[in-house]
Design a protein around this nucleic acid. Structure first.
Length: 851
RNA sequence: GCGGGCGUGGCGGAAUGGUAGACGCGACAGACUCAAACUCUGUUUCCGCAAGGAGUGUCGGUUCGAGUCCGACCGCCCGCACCA
């Protein structure tokens, strides 16, 4: 056996696996299946360490499950639509399609050397017409099922680029590219009716036992269920058709503290009033600024007294003014509220500004009513004294008062208890070229008409230009022209494309039948779904995962997925990032200059450039190109091999936490693999019939390692599995057992290492006479008998402090142990004649003597 | 503001309520070498020559026994945030 040369063995074994079709997923009804999926990458053109960590974790699971006899599906694809391709076309010329497919080829070439157990025959890109055509088919099915609709919605409009911007693209109220002040504009957009599933998406979270608690919580908060009272005010002086004003409140118990009613600037009544120039001016003022959270947060609360009045439901002689207020959201509740300044911070601010009454409904227990200088908002679980309550006791909690108020309102017939959700319908229209075209047609006679399924895919035209702002589809001379599928008259295609989150909301299902001429195939979906283990970043905790959960339900409703797949991901694991130190110097103008890790020399006190310049070392942060704290996986593979990179990203830190990439850590991983290699060579050179000592001990250690590594992988504790492998390696290394025992031990080590470092494992396996390919070999089985020790060493505590120990046969009865313990010299010394009050023997664990 | 998580050696981190610090990095010592690197062996929580003592953010509680459970506080991190 020669030197450890990763470059040689890695290429060799990858070819051997390909030849053996080792990772081809086949539907085998005789075997249990296991579907492991990592979140597919955006084809930026370069893989980074985060990808390496993500895909290595998935690979460990996939290889381990394969060894355990599962029929494994482990596919890979590309989340290939999106803005960067268009930006590249605008900045550097070229075509988004060419750019994207070129990047895919590059990234695939970078991924292959990692030796991932991927079934590449199932590879797909969301920009393949074969993929998005099926997505269009589902869009039409969902339209028919009433899950898709059009409505006018507020968007961030960039007046220079003439396009809609996502909230993330609005920076300080300006378009990120043009720098122009962003306007709010109302556009007719396509929506998925995710809100139809709000309640179900919330309650079903409880069933996702193998999801991180954190993600479930984040989703629950995002869906944002609230219960409260909806009721109608009778209006006075309102425009025609607005005899009543429906409002929603979660605090109906504060109704007697109301001092105004408010409506959203987008409320129909506001629109009805906009004939008044003063109203119109106010509405225009509200439209300034973006729709982002920041924009809204920093916006001043402004209101406009419409002159309309409403009658208080409990006292018709009491009239409240109706304001249009910019902080009221149209798409939550009814878009209208009543304000109770005494017990709501926002209403308090508003009332103070516009000189409205601030009337307490309740006061702290034992306190008298006094003018408020700030709103009084106690916990709902706290008991307070209701001085202007209208239902329930005087002294009660907010919760009880709310329930009593709802009951009373229903009894009096002026309102009803309702449940509301924060979750909005999902706007999917994007005025962009590089996305999945929305397959509908606009006909002068028939209106909005779904495209005929036989005309799918509605394919993106290639001959487009990006030399002008806006959506190239809008100005393409012929692409828009088509015949109305209904009446045959000349019509125009929809030019909006879908949000790229749509593409990633069902790719997991498509992988079960990636070449089918329907979105899915029932048999395949039935066999392969659900994803047993999904792995990806926490940054997708809400949107991607929630949309996928919605989409699976919608696919079930339209007949594309079985009922069991409405929660598509059985288990979710969110892995941490790969981080690195940042190296900074400052240029002559005081601006920071960052340096790549490979240009840095570490010294005792810190770090310098190669010319000796001192460098500031900033603690580890996410690898980012702008901070230059990146390590290119390709460089690591070139100098150490893929196995080292894989081993490193799994060791040290628990998978859910960030791991810091360090040169010394990479060295350590490489050294370890070299040591295993050398150990393998040493065992190979032992005389075949060599009889050593301690075979039984070595084999016991082997079974312990099998048990512990298995447990580590099962529990997603790869760092612990790796620690146990180090331990077992050291044990073999020190052993002087017989050749046959040593061979068995190192073959087992190879198999246990194989999910993490498959190439070196394969070499060792073959060299030590393992049958066939290591990748096809079954996972080692623990012999429980080998885990039982015949003797145990029990620590002896005296009053909880460890003072001595005693070695006894494992099956010695507690009473015998007690006698032995009390006869111990050290124990007698420590007791110094004091009487023993209590003696606790935990068999196989510990002894505690209490005096 | 609301919700959640986490505090253990010089560092990353182990520890079903049962010997705190597994494993790795780093450091130190030794072997090999003319020397260095590599490699190998050993030491490495702190105080102490030792015997021994102290120790898991702080304070208190439960328990024979607490890093682990409970309460309060301090610090750090994350998510959401005008949601009526």
């Amino acid at each position: 056996m020669s030197r450890y040369e990763p470059a040689l063995i890695e290429a060799k074994w990858q070819a051997a696996w390909d030849e053996a079709l080792a990772f081809k997923a086949t539907r085998d009804p005789g075997k249990p299946k296991y579907y492991v999926l990592e979140m597919f990458p955006y084809p930026s053109g370069r893989i980074h360490m985060g990808h390496v960590r993500n895909y290595t974790m998935g690979d460990v699971v996939a290889r381990y499950k394969q060894a355990q006899g599962f029929s494994v599906l482990h596919p890979m694809g590309w989340d290939a639509f999106g803005m960067p391709a268009e930006n590249a076309a605008m900045e550097r010329g070229g075509h988004p399609k060419d750019w994207t497919y070129g990047n895919i080829a590059d990234m695939r070439a970078q991924m292959k050397p990692l030796g991932l157990s991927i079934d590449w025959s199932r590879e797909l890109a969301t920009c393949d017409p074969e993929y998005y055509g099926q997505q269009q088919a589902m869009f039409l099915d969902m339209m028919e099922a009433g899950l898709v609709y059009r409505k006018a919605a507020q968007v961030n409009w960039d007046p220079v680029d003439m396009t809609v911007l996502a909230n993330e693209q609005v920076i300080d109220g300006k378009g990120w590219r043009s720098g122009a002040a962003v306007e709010r504009r109302e556009l007719t957009q396509w929506f998925f009716k995710i809100s139809e599933f709000s309640g179900e998406l919330l309650t079903a979270l409880d069933g996702l036992k193998d999801w991180p608690e954190k993600v479930r919580l984040m989703q629950a908060n995002w869906i944002g269920q609230s219960t409260g009272l909806q009721f109608g005010f009778e209006t006075v002086g309102a425009p025609a058709g607005f005899d009543r004003l429906e409002v929603y409140t979660t605090r109906p118990d504060t109704l007697m503290g109301a001092s105004f009613a408010g409506i959203s600037p987008d409320h129909p009544m506001a629109k009805a009033l906009s004939g008044d120039p003063a109203v119109e001016a106010f509405l225009a003022k509200c439209r300034l600024g973006g729709t982002t959270a920041e924009a809204l947060e920093t916006a001043e609360k402004i209101g406009f007294d419409t002159g309309v009045r409403v009658k208080h439901p409990l006292d018709p002689s009491w009239e409240l003014p109706v304001y249009i207020a910019n902080f009221i959201l149209m798409d939550y509740g009814t878009g209208a509220i009543f304000g109770c300044p005494a017990h709501d911070a926002r209403d308090f601010e508003f009332a103070t500004k516009y000189g409205l009454a601030i009337k307490s409904v309740f006061v702290a227990e034992g306190q008298a009513e006094a003018p408020l200088t700030e709103p009084f908002v106690p916990m709902k679980s706290e008991k307070v004294n209701y001085i202007r309550g209208f239902a329930g006791d005087n002294l009660q909690t907010g919760e009880a008062a709310i329930a009593a108020a709802v009951t009373a309102a229903e009894a009096k017939g002026f309102g009803k208890g309702v449940t509301n959700y924060r979750l909005r319908d999902w706007g999917v229209s994007r005025q962009r070229y590089w996305g999945c075209p929305i397959p509908v047609v606009h006909c002068d006679a028939c209106g909005v008409v779904p495209e005929d399924k036989k005309n799918l895919p509605v394919e993106l035209p290639y001959d487009v230009s990006f030399d002008r702002p806006g959506n190239p589809l809008d100005r393409h001379p012929t692409w828009r022209d088509c015949a109305c599928p209904k009446c045959g008259a000349p019509a125009k295609r929809e030019t909006d494309t879908m949000d790229t989150f749509v593409d990633s909301s069902w790719y997991y299902a498509r992988f079960t039948a990636p070449r089918a001429t329907t979105p899915t195939v029932a048999d395949e979906a039935e066999y392969w779904m659900n994803v047993d283990q999904y792995i990806g970043g926490i940054e997708h905790a809400i949107l991607h995962l929630l949309y996928s959960r919605f989409f699976a339900r919608a696919m079930h409703k339209t007949g594309h997925l079985p009922a069991k797949a409405i929660e598509p991901f059985n288990a979710l694991f969110t892995q941490g990032m790969v981080t690195h130190e940042i190296y900074k110097t400052t240029d002559a103008n005081g601006r920071p200059v960052y340096h790549l890790p490979e240009d840095i020399l570490r010294t005792e006190e810190g770090a310098t450039l190669k010319d000796g310049t001192k460098v500031e070392v900033i603690p580890s942060a996410k690898m980012s190109k702008s901070k230059k704290n990146v390590v290119d996986p390709m460089n690591i593979i070139a100098s150490y091999g893929a196995d080292t990179a894989r081993w490193f990203v799994l060791s040290d830190s628990p998978p859910e936490r960030d791991v810091e990439w360090t040169a010394s850590g990479a060295d350590a991983a490489y050294k370890y693999l070299s040591r295993v290699w050398a150990l393998c060579a040493r065992i190979g050179e032992m005389p075949v019939d060599h009889q050593g000592e301690g075979d039984a001990d070595l084999l016991r250690a082997m079974h312990k390692a099998i048990a512990e590594v298995t447990q580590g992988i099962d529990g997603f504790a790869f760092n612990k599995a790796i620690a146990k492998l180090y331990e077992f390696t050291n044990t073999i290394s020190r052993a002087s057992a017989s050749t046959s025992a040593m061979k068995e031990a190192i073959r087992t080590l190879a198999k246990l290492m194989s999910p993490m470092t498959p190439h070196i494992a394969e070499s060792i396996w073959t060299y030590q006479g393992g049958a066939g390919l290591c990748v096809k070999a079954p996972w080692p089985v623990v012999d429980p008998a080998m885990l039982v020790e015949d003797k145990v060493t029990l620590p002896i505590q005296i009053n909880g402090k460890r003072r001595a120990e005693v070695t006894v046969p494992a099956d010695m009865p507690a009473s015998e142990v007690e006698k032995l313990v009390l006869a111990q010299e050290d124990v007698i010394k420590f007791l110094a004649g004091q009487p023993v009050k209590k003696l606790i023997v935990v068999p196989g664990r510990i002894v505690n003597v209490v005096v």
